[in-house]
Design a protein around this nucleic acid. Structure first.
Length: 275
DNA sequence: ATAAGGCCCTGACCGC
DNA sequence: TGCGGTCAGGGCCTTA
């Protein structure tokens, strides 16, 4: 599942493939993929647009166009965005296809159909609910502590809340809590100042390590798996210490990694190392 | 304001 | 082999 490191990898690797490319015809096979504007308007407005700038906010990909508009893409669970030769035949998971003036096509594929695309003049309303961007100056131990103060919910659930930290998903939340030595069911407001600082550092570290490894690929099949634009996998799964390691020995203490459900999400942790 | 539960989706997997 | 049922889960919406 694409989280911040996976989306960051996408942005970096799509940049040389899309920079300066102009969009021709657009085909939309699953209308709900286009969150805004309506499909007909999207198809009209995307034609002739040129990819110019490339950015990311949380798990949102921001493909800036020379006109000033922005194509925002959220991959959600199983979305893929790939550049392929124009001879490619769209399969049943291809929901949006943009012709490029390079003789290629940009394809949005998504087995679960949760992914969304926006074409907007102003990206701010789409991103308005996002909290601080980790790996930036907007994210700090003090700021994190302030957002957690008074919250009774489990810290695992709060890490998944995009208004607390933008871009953290299930994998990186579990890995960060392990590195910080914090049990996923601890209440957010109950963390000590020292623990908040440790958690802050752990979130930054796992995200940076995830980016360095080009993300985590561990889906059961290629259509569900996160893949880079080239189709290559990331390698951060090789560094997972708890995620999907249920029953395997903790790499620190040897205790079996446990799995519980928190906020309707599977959570993996070491019962011995995480208090 | 916060927390919890439902919803959207379909491939993979399990039991029979 | 095939069928029905269950699970996974990000973000948004509704409910309490």
């Amino acid at each position: 599942m694409p989280e911040l490191p996976e989306v960051e990898t996408y942005v970096r690797e799509l940049t040389p493939l899309l920079a300066g490319r102009r969009v021709g015809a657009a085909q939309v096979f699953w209308p709900r993929t286009i969150a805004a504007p309506d499909v007909a308007t999207f198809q009209t407005q995307i034609i002739g647009q040129e990819f110019a700038t490339f950015g990311r906010r949380g798990k949102y990909m921001l493909l800036g166009l020379a006109s000033g508009a922005t194509l925002i893409v959220h991959l959600r669970m199983t979305g893929h965005l790939q550049v392929e030769p124009a001879s490619v035949t769209p399969d049943k998971h291809t929901h949006v296809m943009l012709d490029l003036d390079s003789g290629e096509r940009l394809l949005f594929r998504d087995a679960r159909k949760f992914g969304r695309i926006w074409l907007v003049d102003d990206s701010a309303p789409v991103l308005a609910r996002l909290g601080p961007e980790p790996l930036s100056d907007d994210f700090s131990p003090g700021g994190l502590g302030a957002l957690l103060a008074g919250r009774q919910a489990a810290i695992k659930a709060l890490l998944l809340d995009q208004t607390i930290v933008a871009g953290v998903g299930n994998i990186y939340a579990d890995e960060a809590l392990f590195r910080a030595g914090i049990h996923p069911l601890r209440s957010g407001g109950g963390l000590t100042e020292v623990e908040v600082v440790r958690l802050y550092a752990a979130v930054c570290a796992v995200l940076a390590d995830g980016i360095a490894a080009a993300g985590s690929s561990l889906g059961v099949s290629s259509i569900q798996n996160y893949q880079r634009p080239s189709g290559a996998p990331g390698s951060f799964q090789e560094q997972h210490r708890v995620f999907q390691r249920t029953g395997q020995p903790c790499l620190v203490c040897g205790a079996p990694i446990a799995r519980i459900v928190v906020a309707q999400r599977s959570s993996h942790f070491c019962p011995h190392c995480q208090k």
